[in-house]
């Protein structure tokens, strides 16, 4: 009996070790836009389950620099993110809030077993990237993935107006 218990414990630690090895990288391209008035977009990046239920925020980029936290005034324009998560938060949140990003490709990498993926249970998920721009529009891109990744997986989608290429890179 004892021996069996020890095996179960070993198996658990082995599988935990596998989880810890995984990695999730997101590439978000902020496109150059030919518009008369340009402001960097607000962007929220999060994980939802297959039914669209919010699981974990990964990042929110907004105007952090404004005095008196005034940049939070437009966070509700990230419509879906605001409804699923933002309105419940006291911003800024360490490790989540970041300044808006300039035109170009921005890469975020998250390691399994560490925040913010630490509590993500094995299953099917979708990465969601939502961008909203002052005097501009809103765009949302979803990329499905399995967690933890069994094999390396790369996929991407091309945005149409507020987002450029959004890529998800999973490593087991």
């Amino acid at each position: 009996m004892r021996w069996k218990g020890a095996t179960a414990a070993m198996l658990l630690s082995v599988s935990a070790g596998r989880l810890l090895a995984g990695e999730l990288s997101v590439e978000v391209e902020i496109p150059a836009l030919r518009v008369a008035e340009y402001h960097r977009p607000y962007v929220a990046i999060w994980i939802e389950d297959e039914r669209g239920r919010h699981q974990q925020d990964l990042a929110v980029w907004y105007d952090l620099e404004m005095k008196n936290n005034e940049g939070t005034k437009w966070l509700k324009d990230l419509r879906l993110w605001w409804r699923r998560s933002g309105r419940q938060l006291e911003l800024p949140v360490d490790g989540l809030s970041g300044a808006t990003r300039p035109v170009g490709v921005h890469r975020l990498t998250f390691a399994a077993g560490e925040a913010p993926l630490k509590n993500l249970l094995p299953g099917q998920y979708r990465l969601v990237v939502e961008a909203a721009r002052e005097v501009g529009g809103l765009e949302r891109i979803r990329l499905p993935f399995q967690w933890p990744a069994e094999t390396a997986l790369q996929q991407h989608k091309q945005g149409q107006h507020e987002l450029g290429r959004v890529a998800l890179d999973m490593k087991p």
Partner: peptide
């Protein structure tokens, strides 16, 4: 009807 920020 839906607002964010400290000064709403």
């Amino acid at each position: 009807t839906v607002l964010s920020g400290d000064n709403a």
